[in-house]
Structures are given as C-alpha cells and as structure tokens.
Nucleic acid binder design. Structure first.
Lengths: 340, 340
DNA sequence: TTGAAAGCGCTAACAA
DNA sequence: TTGTTAGCGCTTTCAA
C-alpha cells in the first residue's frame, strides 16, 4: 500500500531497483519474488522488505517473454451471453487452482471470433478454450494443429479438437421423462435452429418421445431469444390439438413463450407446462420460476481447464469429447395436464 | 493460412526467422510488420511473403516490453452484469479507433475487484477503466495517483479520479415530464436503495414533481432485482389513493412490478403507467415493451476511452466528471390515466 | 547461497 | 533505404 510517490520518479520499480535497494543481485530478487528455493531466510526477508518499500510489481510481459512456458490459457467468450459469464467465473477458479493464468478475449457485435482468437495468439497463450464458438470446423482444426484447443458447449467433429459439453440429448430425455411422468402425452418442442446444441436437444426430444411410445412429435421453429420464443408460442396456440406441454431450446426463448401463453389467458402451469434449458438467472426469479435443465458449469469448466493442461503436458487422453450430464430443476412451470 | 508444419520445428517463427528467410535485417522486418515508413516497396513485398510462408505472428509480449508505451488500457468488468457487456463492446470499438488495445479482467464471485485490477497492473496497462466499481474511494484514489483511472457508471468524489456516467437525475426528469404530459398527477417512485445512481434518480424524481407543482411525492423502497420490484408493487397496490403511474429504479425491478400489477388484474398501461431505467435487453422485448430511460452506452464508452487517452497524453482536462444525458424510449407501458 | 553473464523477441537510436 | 548496436525487465544457465 505504502508506495513511494515523492522523490522516486514515476517509473515503475524493476527487479534491478529492488536489488539495489536490498543490496543483492537481480537474480536473487527474482528467486525471492517467485518463491522458489535458492535464497536464505534472511535475504528473503530483506528483499521482501525492499520490494514492499518500492511498491514493486512484477512485469508479466517480461516474465512471460523470458520463460519458455507462458502458463497462459486464452479464453474467447461472447460478452452478451449470460451463460458465458458463468463459465468464465468457473474457468478463473479452475486455472487458479492449477497455477495457470487466464487471458480473456471478448466476441462482440463489432469484434468477431477470428479477431478475438488472433489477439489471444499474439498474447502467447499456450492453449485455447473457446466458449460456444461459431467458427467453421476447418478453422478450429487449423488452430488445433498448432496448439491445444478445447471447445466448450459446442460439438465439433475433428480428431485434434477437444470438446467439453453438456449432454444436451440427455437433458431433453430428463425433461420429457418428467412431463410424461406428470401425465402429459402431447408434448411439443420449440427448437433453437442452428444454435450450438440445438440439433442434439432436438434429437433428445425425439428419442425420448419415441421411447415413451408417443407418436405426436411436434417440433416448432424457435430460436435463442425471447422474441423468437414469443413467435413460436403464438404458433403453438394455433395448433390443433393443442399440446399440453412444451420443451424449449433455452430459458430466454422459454421466457418469451411463457409471456405469450399468459397473455393469451392461459393459466400456467395448469393449461400448459413449459421446460427451459440453461438455468439462467432469469429462470430462477420467483415470479418466473421456470422448470429447466441445468448445465453443470463447475464440472464443465474444471474439465476444460484440466483437459487443456493435460494436452500441454503431453498426457495421452483417450476420450476427445467429454459429455457432462445435466440435471432437471423442477420449479413452478410444470404440472399434470388439466384433464388429469 | 498455409503454415509450415513439416520440416520447421514447432517453435513459433520470430522476426529473426523472417529476416533470415527474406535475406534482410531484423529491424527492417520490424518496420515492415508495423507498417511504418522506412522500407522500399520491393523489400516490403519480400518480407511480407517470407512472413506469410513462415506463419509469422508478432509476439505482443516482446513488443510491449520493448516499447516505452504499451498502448494498453485495462478494463475491469462484472462478468455477470449484462449492462457491462454492452459497455465492453463499446470500449473495444473506441480503443480500436484510437489505436489502443484492451486488456480485460473479470470480476466474478470468486475473484474480487482488487485481484482483477492487480492483474491489469501486472500487464502493464497504462490506464484503467473500471465499470461500476465497488472499491472504496480511497483505493481508487491510490490507483489514480499512479495512473489514469476512469470510473464508469458510478459517482466518485476525488480529484484524481475521472468519472463518466449517465445523468440519472435528468433521466427521471424526462420520465416524469412524459407522465405529466400524458395527464398523470399521482406518480410514485420505486427506488434502488444504495445502488449506484439510486440517490440521483430519487432526487431527479423529487425535483421533477416539485417543478410541476405536484405535492404527492411518494418514494417506495425497491431494489435492483425483479423480486424486489414485485414486493414494491404489492405495496403500491395497497396505497390509497393509488397512484396512476410509477417510475422504477431500473428495468429489472420494473419487470417485477409489471408482473405483480398484471397478476393483480390491472390492465396496463390503462390502469397504471410504468417507466424503467437502463433499456435492458429485456425492456426491448416486444412482449414487455417497457417505456424506459436509455443510457447512451456508445457515448459513455467513447468518452471513457477518450478521457483515458487524454490523461495519458497529458492533455489538461477541465471537467473531471462527464455526465451524459440519457433519453426516454417510449414503448407500451405508458398511457394517459384511465380517468382522462 | 549468491552473483555474473546471456538472452527471450522485439523496437529505438544511430550510422552507413 | 538498410544494417548495426543496444536494451526493455525478467529468468536461466553457470561459476564462485
């Protein structure tokens, strides 16, 4: 806290400054600052003191330049996407524990994925963790040829690219099982088009219905946003016979669905059961209370980091794709159908 | 795209490699890669070619280490906060235009603001832009003594700390004006407690009512979340005489208000007008259509970056605090009172 | 345990 | 226009 501000020039203190101030050599200060063996307790104390007095802070650029290993993992994430926020939190925790650093690069409306990744490459990241990337597989494969690449929350079919993702199909199996158990037989699905995971969720829905011997498969075009959910819900209302339950691609979309259904005078969950996916902050709100499929973000982020590090260490891994089971969170938008 | 993978060792190509390959000196390659004057067109072409063939990428660490200026601006943001996402997008655009780079550091549940800032300092950022920071003014002042610090979306009273924020009071003036113009005379305000901006918004509400000669000032305890808004709305319904309009601290809180009012059988906006603040993604949804006060994120981010750079350039600035006027976005939750 | 010397990849200052 | 020399702040030899 106490930093020299008066006499000292505004320039940051360097190792050399600390060394001079403590009356030792530069490498010795380096040893102390890194907490590695090779200095006596007395020296350690003296150097610590000097560093404190000068307000010394290591220069990570220089450090990284000199070290062979950067111990830096690059993360590209969508700044608009609330779920990515949760993942980033988990990634920080996981890298901390493993003594690695994280470099963040955001994908924004004006900054595409390639730019985000390019900046990570310039920063000498040793491995890349990409959250729900949209880049073509060929591009990801090019990257993976040069360095470990772990894709999170998207399926990628390429032998060099590691994948950690939720078992989307299993999530829909759980959702449908829950509905069937409540007594529903006419269950629709509002899908996410070409969004990551949408195909798997669609498949899970279809399989689960078939498994229960339900023939009335009804997949409606939806999307990722509330407005797309609202549009899908309007179409749903016109369906004859009207389903008594619906699984929705994600929570945001489900919010739009809920709103239109309520606006149309339906009393929920009596008149219609709705299940989302993601366990968004929004889903948890008491007045929304959306039943949803929760992804295990902690597990996902831990495995993503572990996998990246394993690749860096040259550990041979057998399963390129790590598929994490989700779990159903039952709240207030599901109930037996009104007829039963 | 075409990278040498076979004969070349997996080590990244350096300037020296490119220089050797092109048959020129290292600094010349540096000149070409940086696109600065000092090389003939022919050489430029040859160097470019060599760099391409070797898949050369500049090492930003080394670059930053050597340069006196890092041209790096550090940003600390809350990864959970949707509004920060918008701001980060804007900051990228603004730094791009000014030929600076952004270093991102997230504040997460497990990583506090001090850690986030510490990592930015290690990265040799020249200036700091802090989004809605929670640190005490004393800490911000300590930082500001060492480098330019621009605080966004929070008021900080210290001569060394620059501030860019929305004119919260003006936002409420606009909201109240709109309601009065529609014919409302009983207007309540649901406040945000001690959240950043809440005091200013409360003040704006009070001033505006007084300006219109309306005596019935009614400030109700609310908060930042939907649930707190819902609670406040229940209290509002019990008020006698019941107001015909309400301004709410922010959009999230307003969403909770809307939900309770509708649930109580009120028909909106006929029975009650509601105005939020922030122009959240949620407010824009066609089925919510919340009339709200929008913050000018583009202006805010541009000014934050401009100000940081001005400080770095040593330009003398007169106004430490930049207060940006918001603007009212009229949507579907406001209408004349039902009696009129 | 300590210090001297070298060099990570790059850019800045200067000389040719 | 081009090359030479030096050095950013740090870590890594290696020798004392």
């Amino acid at each position: 806290m106490a930093e020299v501000t008066g006499s000292t020039p505004r320039r940051r203190a360097t190792l050399a400054d600390v060394a001079a101030h403590a009356g030792v050599s530069v490498p010795l200060v380096s040893i102390v600052m890194r907490d590695v063996p090779g200095a006596s307790a007395a020296t350690r104390e003296r150097v610590r003191q000097a560093a404190e007095e000068l307000g010394y802070r290591p220069d990570s650029r220089a450090r990284l330049l000199r070290r062979t290993r950067s111990r830096l993992i690059g993360v590209a994430f969508g700044v608009q996407h609330p779920f990515h926020g949760d993942l980033v939190s988990g990634l920080y925790a996981a890298t901390d524990a493993a003594d690695y650093e994280l470099a963040l690069s955001a994908v924004t409306p004006g900054r595409d994925e390639r730019r985000a990744i390019a900046s990570l490459l310039q920063d000498r990241c040793e491995a890349l963790i990409l959250l729900g990337p949209h880049s073509p597989t060929s591009y990801l494969a090019d990257l993976a040829a040069r360095m470990p690449v772990v894709v999170v929350a998207r399926a990628v079919r390429h032998r060099d690219v590691d994948v950690v993702r939720t078992d989307d199909a299993a999530g829909l199996h759980q959702a449908v099982d829950h509905l069937v158990h409540l007594g529903h037989t006419r269950i629709a699905h509002i899908d996410g088009g070409r969004a990551p995971g949408a195909a798997e969720r669609r498949r899970g829905y279809r399989e689960a219905l078939q498994r229960h011997g339900l023939a009335a498969i009804q997949i409606m075009s939806g999307g990722l946003t509330e407005d797309e959910g609202a549009a899908a819900a309007r179409a749903l209302l016109d369906t004859v016979p009207r389903p008594t339950a619906v699984t929705v691609f994600n929570d945001r979309c489900a919010i739009g669905v809920l709103d239109v259904l309520r606006g149309a005078g339906l009393y929920l969950p009596r008149d219609m059961s709705v299940i989302g996916f993601d366990d968004d902050r929004l889903a948890r709100l008491s007045h929304v209370a959306l039943t949803t499929v929760a992804q295990d973000t902690q597990q996902i982020t831990n495995l993503a980091v572990t996998r990246a590090i394993a690749r860096l260490d040259g550990t041979t891994v057998t399963d390129r794709e790590l598929i994490i089971p989700p779990h159903l969170v039952v709240r207030g938008t599901t109930a037996p159908p009104s007829g039963s």
